[in-house]
Design a protein around this nucleic acid. Structure first.
Lengths: 254, 254
DNA sequence: AAGTGGTCTAGACCACTAA
DNA sequence: TAGTGGTCTAGACCACTTG
């Protein structure tokens, strides 16, 4: 099975063979692969080599490994699509925070854990909010769960000056329409949002919090909310599991 | 250095120690780490264990490894920010294709390799373009390079029916304003774009084409261009290196 | 030539899962 | 209890980079 003279490392040949069997449907989604010891037999390589091969497929997100159970072909994951039209005032008003609106659309039972704290702004926050370094900010640190499974982390920071005028934002429960509604009631009429999107591998903390399979990156979204006057009032850093989310944006051609 | 009784695997302890030294600035960006054999000595573990530790840091994107040279603390990468306002008609008209416009902003020397082919639409393409499965589409397959380095892959598909009316789109060189300008000249006035964004680990092909360091995911953007009548005329699948790109979107609050 | 990481072996024991 | 993956060892040879 393995061509020793080809110059291609044995573990890559094993990985390529398994990958091929998966792609061709020979091993269908959810199916268990032969155990590592069986693969050792059938390919005639050492266990370390088999593990390197499986590790490669893992890092590609092709298989998942469950300790004590086995290696399985990863089934295609269900994506939750986040359309940015949900930032419209109407959509915001309809729901108690945006995540609960997503839940209504996505058909899952949402739960959110919120922790509030106050701290001096670090450099990045200060720059985003256009305030002095070290100015006090209100931090809303949230873990969003779908059917009990953590799927999203979000940390919002707002100048304390702003939240003092909208005290509900300093509370865990912000009520109908969420924090944005409270801000608007306090006179901070929102004009537009800017979202920057990138991706990276999770930190170990994020991986365990979001229960990420290895080989799954996170999508990092930084949203800044601006008032109609162009003053930034909130910066929200969101961490999403890349295999569970897809973002959707509409852009006019003009 | 390693606590054998803690229950934490040795390779994780080694990784944690190195990560800490990097975060604290004790090992600054670009610095070479001690060689694997030196780490074997200093931590009193086997080489495999050291390699597992380094592999973990690699997969987190914390270090890069160069065969024959050593392991280095990964310097923060320069990000190219793609603002979606560049899809405005004015921005499109100003440049010969969007990537060349990005280059002007980013200050790098761009080059693009384009291959044109014609093929029947697969299921996903057909759905995006709202055409029958198997209808002939024009495929523009592109590799974009910045200063010679491949940084972006893009595959556009348009119904052949459409490109026959804008023959320049079936050519490698589309001229001033790029393919979108030719489409508009042919009467396909563009109304809006929709972009869906997600991320995943690269396939081996993508990794080698984009020369991705291991542990760097790709951002996958699918853009569909619609005419003012709401007819989709192009679906463009873009693959971006996540450590080199950041996307930026503006969203009105209304 | 010397030093670096890349691959590989044969075997051991541990931790988790399921019957 | 048996089977799975997780961790680890001590050592070997290869491929790449640099002086």
């Amino acid at each position: 099975m393995i061509d020793r003279s080809s110059g291609v490392p044995a573990y890559r040949q094993v990985a390529a063979d398994l990958r091929e069997k998966i792609k061709s449907g020979n091993l269908s989604p959810g199916t268990q692969l032969p155990s590592e010891r069986e693969l050792v037999e059938s390919y005639g390589v050492s266990r370390v080599t088999v593990r390197d091969a499986v590790g490669l497929l893992r890092s590609e997100g092709v298989v998942t490994v469950e300790h004590g159970r086995g290696v399985f072909v990863r089934p295609p994951t269900t994506v939750q699509r986040l359309s940015r039209s949900r930032l419209s005032r109407a959509a915001r008003d309809a729901n108690q925070g945006m995540f609960l609106g997503d839940a209504a659309q996505g058909g899952f039972t949402p739960s959110v854990t919120v922790r509030i704290r106050f701290e001096p702004a670090d450099e990045a926050t200060a720059q985003s909010l256009e305030i002095e370094d070290g100015t006090e900010v209100t931090v809303r640190d949230r873990v969003m769960r779908a059917d009990g499974l953590p799927v999203q982390l979000a940390i919002s920071r707002l100048p304390r000056d702003v939240t003092r005028q909208a005290p509900a934002v300093e509370q865990v429960e912000t009520g109908q329409g969420g924090a944005y509604a409270r801000l608007e009631e306090a006179g901070f009429r929102l004009g537009h949002f800017n979202e920057t999107v990138t991706a990276r591998m999770p930190t170990p903390d994020e991986a365990s919090l979001l229960q990420l399979a290895s080989g799954v990156p996170v999508i990092v979204v930084t949203r800044i909310a601006y008032t109609v006057d162009g003053k930034p009032v909130e910066v929200n850093d969101m961490i999403l599991s890349a295999d569970r989310y897809e973002l959707s944006y509409d852009i006019p051609a003009e």
